[in-house]
Design a protein around this nucleic acid. Sequence first.
DNA 1: TTATAATAGTTGCATAACTAACTATATGTC
DNA 2: GACATATAGTTAGTTATGCAACTATTATAA
Lengths: 146, 146
Amino acid sequence: MSNNQFKRGELYSVINGVASTSVARRLQKNFRNAGLEITIEQWSILYHLWKEDGLSQQELCTRTFRDKASITRLIDNIEKLGLVERIASKDDRRVNLVYLTDAAKPLQEATYNIANQTMNEALQGISKEEIEIVKSVFQRVYENSK
Amino acid sequence: MSNNQFKRGELYSVINGVASTSVARRLQKNFRNAGLEITIEQWSILYHLWKEDGLSQQELCTRTFRDKASITRLIDNIEKLGLVERIASKDDRRVNLVYLTDAAKPLQEATYNIANQTMNEALQGISKEEIEIVKSVFQRVYENSK
DNA sequence: TTATAATAGTTGCATAACTAACTATATGTC
DNA sequence: GACATATAGTTAGTTATGCAACTATTATAA
């Protein structure tokens, strides 16, 4: 495969960074064409849960750069699809922990393969050095702007 | 002023490219703090009309990377604010040309100053070379993904 | 201990995005 | 000229975003 193959952990940060509009739209279409009826926003939540299950909604806010209200409603929708469930924390009754259901597990490989292929196509002709610069610029712009 | 000062024509493409999330949010807040009650999406339309007044809705689709339905409703909202008006083309009766009203003109300088300052803050410590690379990568990613 | 402040999450409101289905006008072909 | 096709714009339906106001719980301070 091309040398644009990504480590798993890098994938979302690159999509969320380099590619927020055109690649996101392409990825959404590729999900749909494969019969996967989830949005990329929903997928971004699942992505973080596949890395670490049982995150709080607040932690998902931080990791996906969204506000509380957006996360509340995203989780609502993913819960309706039967892919996650909220379980109240025993340590702090204010907190909802979000857990993947069994139905979510088969999606992991399929969506990862599609995302990886979409990224490879999007990043054709772009060197790893350029990608590193883009990621670095994004990080600094984010820090400068918050 | 810093050497990150932008030429007018570059500003939007950079904001639309480098900065789609964190800088956009910051810019929205800075507009609001200055008493300017427009969204950045509305501003992106005005920005193109200030460069060239009387564009068709289709042309605005192309220039702002949005679909027809999005433009229809964005123009609806900007029209409600009294900042633009639709005038039917005489050459082709399918076409609406979008013209700025007198009320839109005073916004130009104020929003440009805020946008320029917001960008300067966001891009502190980032070199012109890095910005060029980011813009170039975005262009190629866009071409690869459409 | 009680009053105050901070935090986690939900809900209401407004804006915006995309898809798909629709109307109206133009264009192209037989 | 007539029919098929393409183009410009609108509308309906769904999802998502942000802000502000709200409830419930936890932490802090007098």
